[in-house]
Design a protein around this nucleic acid. Structure first.
Lengths: 343, 343
DNA sequence: CCACAGTGTTGCGACAGACGCAACACTGTC
DNA sequence: GACAGTGTTGCGTCTGTCGCAACACTGTGG
């Protein structure tokens, strides 16, 4: 077994290890060798070698025949394309995103929540890109990115408390990490209907993001525009933020959302807090055939609740909240922020 | 063990199964249940259930809490983004792709070879899209797609023979499946420097594709433009094809390729035939700092050749050529063509 | 309201597959 | 040519994976 015995998480150990290996490939290190992977995961080289051989046969990694080192393979792009194609919101929002990019002159993204991160699911590059900002699939922190903040601000109160109960990662000197300050920021976003992020997540990156709501007012995505800080000064940022909010409001209206006279906090969301369903759900829009008919209405409450529509907890899911012992090698934690945009 | 015993492929069985599960999720069936997956892979429901729990913990799939069925998860998009970001050619070609889409009015793609398929690694949508053509990550057949044909036409003779030695899949009544006819098509492409595909891969889809060469003349990618057949009639298609070829030639020139007075067939390629390396290699371009310095020059020859730079064959890779017995459940074969573009 | 058929989950014991060890083949450097 | 490092592979051990059986839950029809 591994040098540091891992308490059984309830999953299949070999598959867990394969997943952990794939997640080690970051933007800073697109190529890794067997020995380095073994060192990081504290497994034997022969174990890693066999894992890589299996992943390569499936197209998930490729080995450079000269150096013997491995890279992520394009079979991942194929599966990702399929995953992304499920999101009907991408098709619905594509035109608005193109228009927003043209109006603001900046790179624009559509993001949804996935666990405790925002993930870009569509992107329109700026007509004048200075650098490679974000990318589809990129994970952004909820507390300090323009795409993430609205998803957090309009989440359930208990969910926000849970997210803020763990130390908030600091990405730049401007990252807000104090939970009290974060609550004040959340109040601001709720009032303004748009979030700003000025060099909080990445140096010299400024962005504005606004919530996209479905017909019940549930925040299901965010629209954001981002660019270099030298181009997005205070005045320009407010102008861009107005565009972003207008785009998000327009999309929300198209999904059947009717804004009340006072802003409300999200209540009784579908499904599991923290995951956006790829299939849009609609009340009044259902009759238009725009979206697939949703399954039976969701109910508020915890993950996998019995009766009223939810499945009972699974031990493997319970393991998600497992607090690993000291020295434990993290296996599934998604990595954020170590991927800086390239100039 | 499974009802149909599988000869040991040399890989790790649990990981192979996990990969096979992920590949079952297609565009036609984005959501699958445990029982259905078990039926298709001829494994027990409990085996599949535990595999899915492990993949879900890693973010590779998501379970709909109401229906209990699974979908591909966004962690795949994150890994795919990292895989795609390695391809320097995307950055180099992005501007040309935008210009080509504007000039032709059609959706344009950049594709590379991955095993026996062409895979889109970048895309610019038509200003007037009629339908959702292709997508990044989509795998296209080498024998009947505009992106694939140039990759095949300029491959090594032995490689072409190998590809044409197995029955060519038929996607539409117009698909060329006769190897002799395919050789003639290959000769045409070599002379014209551009490939056409008129409803060969997908009904009512017409496309043109041209090879992008590196400084040594090696075909490392294709540029293609595609659109609905009602818009791309014969005259219009030739016009688009001219644009596509010009764009590909321009990109090739930018990579250091100098076209000889007579067309040549590719010789002595880098690395493994069938896989495009994400890192561009350059002779004269190296001094300009445009590309990362390549590793030591590659040598011609077979996969994993000893001495002159190649590693010895691995049993697991040898298993790629393994001919499965009757009744064998395919585990890694990439699927093509069952994914039709959505109107 | 109940019976039934279907779904996905879980405890458990058997054993087949995964693992680490040791040795090997290969490569780059001095 | 020696050496240090890489990744690969044969082999025996044992533990993690697997399938069975039972369970919990859901939707449907009477």
């Amino acid at each position: 077994m591994s040098a540091v015995p891992t308490p059984r998480s309830g999953g299949i150990q070999s598959v867990e290890r394969a997943v952990a290996v794939l997640k080690l490939f970051g933007e800073a290190e697109p190529e890794l060798g067997v020995t380095e992977l073994a060192r990081r995961l504290r497994l034997h080289k022969s174990t890693i070698s066999r894992l890589m051989a299996t992943l390569e046969a499936g197209g998930f990694v490729q080995q450079d025949p000269r150096s013997g080192r491995y890279r992520l393979g394009l079979q991942l792009a194929t599966l990702a394309g399929r995953a992304l194609n499920q999101y009907e919101l991408r098709d619905v929002a594509r035109g608005a995103l193109v228009t927003l990019a043209q109006a603001t002159g900046e790179t624009c993204n559509l993001a949804v929540r996935d666990g405790d991160a925002a993930v870009n699911i569509d992107q329109v590059l700026s007509p004048n890109p200075v650098k490679h900002l974000g990318w589809i699939g990129r994970r952004l922190p909820l507390h300090c990115s323009a795409a993430g903040k609205p998803l957090l601000a309009f989440a359930l109160h208990t969910d926000i408390e849970r997210v803020l109960s763990v130390p908030l990662a600091s990405y730049t000197p401007r990252t807000v990490t104090d939970p009290s300050a974060m609550w004040r920021e959340i109040q601001r976003i709720r009032v303004d209907g748009v979030a700003l992020a000025v060099e909080e997540f990445e140096p010299e990156l400024t962005a504005a993001g606004a919530p996209v709501r479905d017909y019940r007012g549930e925040v299901i995505a965010t629209v954001s525009a981002s660019g270099p800080s030298f181009r997005l000064n205070s005045d320009r940022l407010l102008e861009v933020a107005a565009h972003v909010r207008a785009t998000a409001d327009h999309l929300s209206a198209g999904l059947g959302y009717r804004a009340p006279t006072i802003p409300v906090i999200s209540v009784a969301p579908f499904g599991v807090p923290g995951h956006a369903s790829p299939v849009l759900r609609s009340g009044e829009l259902e009759t238009t055939g725009v979206n697939k008919a949703p399954k039976r209405p969701g109910t508020p409450g915890n993950d996998r609740q019995t009766l009223t529509g939810r499945r009972a907890p699974r031990d493997a899911r319970a393991s998600r909240a497992h607090v690993p012992p000291a020295g434990h090698i993290a296996r599934f934690e998604g990595d954020l922020g170590e991927e800086r945009s390239r100039w």
